[in-house]
Simulated scan of single mutants.
Amino acid sequence: MLRLLFIGAPGVGKGTYASRVAESLGLLHISSGDLLRAEVAKGSPVGAQIKEKIDQGLFVPDTLISEMISNHIQSSSAKGYILMATPATYPKHSLYSRVGNLSQAQFVQQSGLINIDRVYNLRQPYNVILAKISSRRSCADCGFGYNYANINEGGIRMEPLVPKVDGVCDKCGSNKPFVTRPDDVLETVQRRLDLYQDVTKPLEDYYAHLDKLTHFDVLGGTKQFLPKLLKLIDDEKSRYQKK
């Protein structure tokens, strides 16, 4: 069984790589945010507790989220799983993963509810991430996403993802001006990256001390670098794969 955790700055591509690696290797891709939202939508007893915390502007307790993820893992027949780490920095972000900072990672490690065999730290120069996130646009009608960043520096080449017809959405045909999400505004992106930089070093040091950390530099698009990541995981899995 492969039990992996992906960490990395906002915009580095954790979600994209985690979902594609999970699909390629037959693993369960776990989004604690999706699980929590599902519980709230179902109106389950757990969902009611979660909604109460969020409505009060409080964090969802680590114990509750860890137990929920553990139950989800146990109910799956997948050959392993991939978790993602996103710092829960504000109450409104309390739906995110509970392994996003040092104290959360220590809780997960010590609780024994969720096992992590290997941690992959996806890295990319901050100026590249800044350009990528701040260049994201979406259709005002259907929400389909585009990215106008055209990056070619320091050996990193990422071409823009733009509509086939300028100003017209490929998916729904709307010609309304594309919009920028509030989280993608340049100043907001910079604050998010600065905040992540404050929490990432202790997290990296913690997993390095446990001999669980592998760095992976994302210096291009997924077409080129997904095979590289898959090969890295395959090369290393004999060190941590569980039967």
Results as ranks from 00 to 15, higher is better:
S19M: 09
S238D: 13
I129L: 15
G8M: 05
M68I: 12
D198Y: 11
I69P: 00
K237Q: 15
Y240H: 14
L203K: 03
S103H: 13
A38W: 03
D166V: 13
K42S: 11
I82W: 01
I82Y: 01
A131L: 08
S238C: 11
N101T: 12
L95G: 12
Q124H: 07
A131I: 01
G220S: 08
A149L: 05
S138P: 05
Q190H: 11
G155Y: 00
D183H: 07
L210W: 07
K242G: 11
D211F: 08
G57Y: 10
L219Y: 05
R3C: 08
A78V: 08
M68N: 10
V128I: 15
V179W: 01
A9G: 08
T214M: 09
Q241G: 06
G145W: 07
D62L: 11
Q110L: 13
I30Q: 01
A22G: 12
G26W: 04
S138E: 12
H72R: 13
V199L: 13
D205V: 02
R157T: 11
N121I: 04
K223D: 14
A22W: 03
H29Q: 11
I7W: 00
S238Q: 12
R20V: 05
P163L: 04
E153P: 01
T86A: 12
G11Y: 00
S94Q: 11
I129M: 13
F225A: 05
I133W: 02
I133Y: 02
N71G: 12
V168E: 12
M84C: 11
I151S: 02
M158Q: 09
